[in-house]
Design a protein around this nucleic acid. Structure first.
Lengths: 121, 121
DNA sequence: TCAAGTACCGAAAAAATTTTCGGTATATGA
DNA sequence: TCATATACCGAAAATTTTTTCGGTACTTGA
């Protein structure tokens, strides 16, 4: 068996369940990238999230497939091609992603002033 | 200087900013506990979240104070007493917490069936 | 031929988070 | 006196997550 997530989702409380599905560093960004519903290739996702190492996207996409947020299609071509598409379940998380995006936009200035390079906190 | 958070909030993208404020294991639960606006003592918070070690709540509450989501009042009494109250900034995150709570409730069954003790995944 | 692109994966290193443990200090109640 | 409770903190252990590195395999284009 390949890579195995040590801790699956948290079934103890509804809030922790939701958090456990998206709290990894890049998962919320991946959902945001896939929001259009069009398939994206791994290399394309990486181009949009250059700060994430390809291996991390690999691992996190695999978990998201396992959790049912995303589906993967492998095309039997050479050179290899695969695509990830957000599922209806994944789409149902988008309002939350949207709200977080909006909140971040609304409060970015506050935190830039507080923690930014010129701030002395 | 006491405990120091290694990575402050993520100022690179609005989505990551919001996530970085709440993605630690217990922060969203703490915000949920403090939602009423009434002050809560550390021991009281711990009673509500028994799975979290008191030390973790300590550390995460300290970060939340630093980030401006919560204020702390220390009463000069013996035995010592302190209280945490959610700020307006913290309250502005509650709609997001609510949405995650609701999503978790709506989909708990799905994941219990998938990952629960009786599921063979 | 060689470099670059494509996708993927294991192993291990690095970094971050969470947890446990022990200690400070004081008061109350058995 | 002793256990319990309050709050807090440092240090270290344990765990988890993230990142880096190297390798497989094949194609295209220079």
């Amino acid at each position: 068996m390949a890579y195995e997530k040590k801790i699956p989702v948290d079934l103890d409380c509804p809030l922790r369940l939701t958090m456990s599905l998206i709290e990894s560093k890049w998962k919320s960004c991946i959902l945001d990238e896939l929001r259009s519903g069009n398939g994206m290739r791994p290399s394309e996702i990486h181009k949009q999230l250059p700060e994430a190492a390809p291996r991390v996207l690999d691992i996190q996409l695999k978990e998201m497939v396992e959790d049912g947020l995303v589906v993967k299609t492998i095309y039997p071509e050479l050179p290899p091609r695969s695509e990830y598409v957000i599922t209806d379940l994944g789409k149902s998380l988008l309002p939350i992603i949207d709200a977080m995006l909006k909140w971040g936009e609304d409060h970015m200035d506050l935190f830039t002033a507080k923690y930014g390079p010129k701030a002395e906190h």
